[in-house]
Design a protein around this nucleic acid. Structure first.
Lengths: 164, 164
DNA sequence: TGTTTGTATTTCAGATATGAAATATATGGA
DNA sequence: TCCATATATTTCATATCTGAAATACAAACA
């Protein structure tokens, strides 16, 4: 019994009432939504002891995954999947917490560099065991071939959404 | 070239820096986030002419997919994947727009019934062609066997997240 | 009956996210 | 040079969402 069952049941009724309604994409889209909400909530709960949100975590980790630990707000927006107005706010918060540093670029003065601070790096090292444990538990029941297949299909789906 | 490439690239760097970091679940979680944002934005854009949001659309469609077009806020919260405090607000808006009706239950006076109105039904009939077109375009590049496999794997993933 | 415990919904304050406009700088011609 | 257009970021008003507390009723039972 999954929390998704009531949703699926209601999609079935919709299909009966609207013969043109395409079940498969509708189910996929709603599964994505359910999964995202769940993953987002779990991540927020896990990160609570460190006083950062899932969105802030994503910013820190995108900087961490970059040579030089530095990105511009616009690169960060793409990597973290946030709108640029939101990046400004998140970066403000992370600066206030001392986890990143904001410096002006001199090569292009429109640009801003956001760099992981020493404290930001230390926090990542600190929460990393908890993050790894959560991530591992999330796929614990799936075989490597299944997760690889899921990755492939999700990328194909994303590619389709982004065509044109 | 996908908008996901920069993210994936940064996850690869993270794996190099943190050998314990499990790539596969991290990639899946971030793909889910990217997909959700995209689907959510596209749905909002498509629905704009009708003056409703993606979240409001989900409420309407969950009522539409129910015998009697009626649900309680708590059932709606589960079906639509929203927190109950949010259902109250969304239902308020939909009532103001005349798309649903709120009535007290007499069998259990704590409960509230939210019912699709005549105008709500008419709006669904009206936007249905655009909804179907969007949904179909979203999986246009995938074979039925692939979407079925994706559905199966997403359900397995969700099941894993919800164990315990 | 009265009391306790549980469930359904709403309220409220604060967090989070958004679009559109504003600001500042860059770039490529005329 | 001057101008038009493009890019990067922020600001601001508003929309959206959340947790926690408050409210209202139900159900079980001493």
């Amino acid at each position: 019994m999954s929390s998704f069952d009531p949703t699926e049941q209601r999609l079935a009724v919709t299909c009966r009432r609207q013969p043109a309604f395409p079940r498969e994409p509708a189910v996929l889209v709603r599964l994505i939504k359910h999964l995202y909400k769940r993953v987002h909530d779990d991540a927020n709960a896990m990160l609570k002891p460190w006083g950062i949100s899932h969105a802030e975590y994503n910013i820190l980790m995108m900087l961490y995954g970059t040579e030089g630990y530095t990105l511009n707000p616009s690169q960060l927006a793409e990597a973290a999947g946030e709108k640029s107005a939101n990046i400004t706010r998140l970066a403000d918060n992370l600066c206030d917490k001392g986890l990143i540093e904001r410096t002006a670029s001199d090569e292009d003065r429109r640009k801003v560099s956001l760099t992981l601070s020493r404290a930001g790096l230390a926090m990542i090292d600190d929460f990393m065991p908890a993050v790894c444990a959560l991530l591992e538990s999330q796929t614990a029941g799936m075989k490597p071939a299944e997760t690889a297949q899921l990755e492939r299909l999700l990328k194909k789906f994303l590619g389709q959404l982004e065509r044109d």
